[in-house]
Amino acid sequence: MGGKKIKSVSYAKYGYIFSLPFVLAFLIFTAYPVLYTAVIGFTDLKGLGKTDFKFLENPFQNFIQILKTPSFQESLGNTVLIWTVNFLPQILLALLLTAWFTNQRQKIRGQGAFKVLFYMPNIITAATIAILFSTLFGYPMGPMNDLFKLLGLSQEPINFLNNKTTARMVVSFIQFWMWYGQTMIVLIAGVLGINPELFEAAEIDGATSRQVFFYITLPSLRTIMLFTLVTSLIGGMQMFDIPKLFLNGGPDNATLTVSVFIYNQAFSGSYMYNRAAAASMILFIIIVVLSAILFYVMRDKDAAKLKKEIKKMKAAQKAAAKGVQA
């Protein structure tokens, strides 16, 4: 051990050298652009091809104006709504499938094939999926209209995507459809990571499948579910490809998300980089605050629960000891 330590001291500089490309790339392509975006938010930078700017007299003017813009407020509401409507069924279905696929008493055959098919939509280009779905919901003719006619649900062709609620629900559905497979695989991996002795103990105690799931599997998945929730939230708040290409934010701003709003501010119309930058920073702050809240709430409960469990275990141990003595 001692010899190794002396050697590693002389090699320490390679730790820095080998990390250098990462650090440089991060500083140049991430850190600097984030700061630059923040700065642009306080300036008058707009117009195609402009790069020079002056700071505004009221530095927060862009931020105030963005917060007052009705379409920004709408986009924020849409983003939260579309994400929530996609995430709740997504995590519930993923949990249900996880319970089925990890149930040792009733094995499901062809699990491998099911996993492959459920995950598949996730790797297909979102741009393609957006346009594919807008074609599937075509009006007056399209596969979805044909299906409705076939099932006798409607005689007249329906212009699905002209309805604000339907349009939002379809975007939510696409997100759900693309991601539940991924969430399921992550949760199954989480279950496989649980100490098998816990399951054996439950088996010996005669617990039912349902009891095992609710009292062992679910509590053990807390950390992984928190992780899934936070990554999904961060991704969902930046949702762009599907809403942009599916209906370009329409109809009547119903599927306009914050990222599409930012894109439209900066790269169309009057090229308001300053407003887009201010909106980006607002989005950034919202994401940080939401993530922090989630981590705080979940962690606190976890710790409290753990304390309770430990108390229970101690009580149980005492009781057991008494039982042995008796």
Binding site: P33, L35, A38, A276
Partner: peptide, 12 residues
């Protein structure tokens, strides 16, 4: 979140 730096990145 990657997208929050996009305006600065583009200008740069």
């Amino acid at each position: 979140p990657a997208q929050v730096s996009s305006i600065g990145f583009y200008q740069f």
